[in-house]
Simulated scan of single mutants.
Amino acid sequence: MGEINLYGIYIPILLVQAIIAYLLFKLLSPWIDRLVIKGWIALPSIFNLCFYLAVLLLVHGLFVWLWV
């Protein structure tokens, strides 16, 4: 995919995707916190990392699907 040239500054597409995924993660985290409080998630820190990576994968897939 490459990078975006923004007024002479090259910004990697993966950085843009990571920022979008982080914003989506922050929007969805209150629902995850409710599951943690109820005890449904045993290791919340590892779950949060995996959940962020899953959101990043979905954002990347969306970018690839729209780019083609």
Results as ranks from 00 to 15, higher is better:
Val64Asn: 00
Phe47Cys: 01
Leu15Val: 13
Ile41Tyr: 00
Ser45Ile: 08
Ala54Thr: 07
Ile20Pro: 01
Gly61Ala: 05
Asn48Thr: 02
Tyr7Trp: 10
Glu3Thr: 14
Asn5Gly: 08
Lys26Gly: 00
Trp67Thr: 08
Ser29His: 09
Gly8Lys: 00
Leu28Asn: 06
Pro30Ile: 06
Ser45Arg: 13
Gly39Leu: 06
Ala18Arg: 11
Leu23Met: 12
Leu56Phe: 03
Val16Ser: 05
Leu58Arg: 04
Ile46Phe: 13
Ile20Thr: 01
Ile19Ser: 11
Ser29Cys: 06
Ser29Trp: 08
Val59Gly: 02
Ser45Trp: 12
Ile46Gly: 06
Pro30Cys: 02
Ser45Cys: 09
Leu56His: 01
Ile11Arg: 12
Ile32Asp: 00
Met1Pro: 07
Pro44Thr: 00
Glu3Leu: 13
Leu49Asn: 11
Trp65Met: 07
Phe47Leu: 05
Leu6Gln: 12
Asp33Asn: 13
Ala42Tyr: 12
Pro12His: 12
Pro30Tyr: 03
Leu53Met: 15
Gly39Lys: 06
Phe25Asn: 02
Gln17Asp: 09
Phe63Asp: 02
Tyr10Glu: 14
Ala42Met: 11
Asn5Met: 11
Leu28Asp: 06
Trp65Asp: 01
Pro44Ala: 04
Ile32Pro: 03
Ile19Phe: 09
Leu27Glu: 10
Asn48Lys: 12
Ile20Lys: 03
Leu28Glu: 09
Leu24Lys: 01
Val55Trp: 01
Ile19Met: 12
Leu14Glu: 15
Gly39Pro: 04
Tyr7Asp: 14
Ile20Glu: 04
Val64His: 03
Ala18Ser: 15
Asn5Cys: 10
Trp31Ser: 09
Ile9Asn: 14
Trp40Val: 08
Ile37Phe: 06
Leu28Arg: 06
Val36Pro: 01
Leu35Arg: 09
Ile19Gln: 10
Met1Trp: 10
Gly39Ala: 08
Pro12Lys: 15
Val16Met: 07
Leu58Cys: 10
Ile19Asp: 10
Leu15Lys: 15
Leu6Pro: 01
Leu28Pro: 03
Met1Tyr: 12
Lys38Asn: 10
Gly39Tyr: 04
Ser29Glu: 14
Gly8His: 04
Leu14Ala: 13
Ala42Ser: 12
Gly2Ala: 12
Val55Cys: 02
Ala18Pro: 08
Asn5Gln: 12
Ile46Ala: 11
His60Asp: 09
Lys26Tyr: 05
Tyr7Thr: 09
Trp67Asn: 09
Ile4Phe: 15
Tyr7Val: 08
Ile19Asn: 09
Tyr22Gly: 06
Lys38Phe: 11
Ile41Met: 05
Leu49Trp: 11
Trp67His: 09
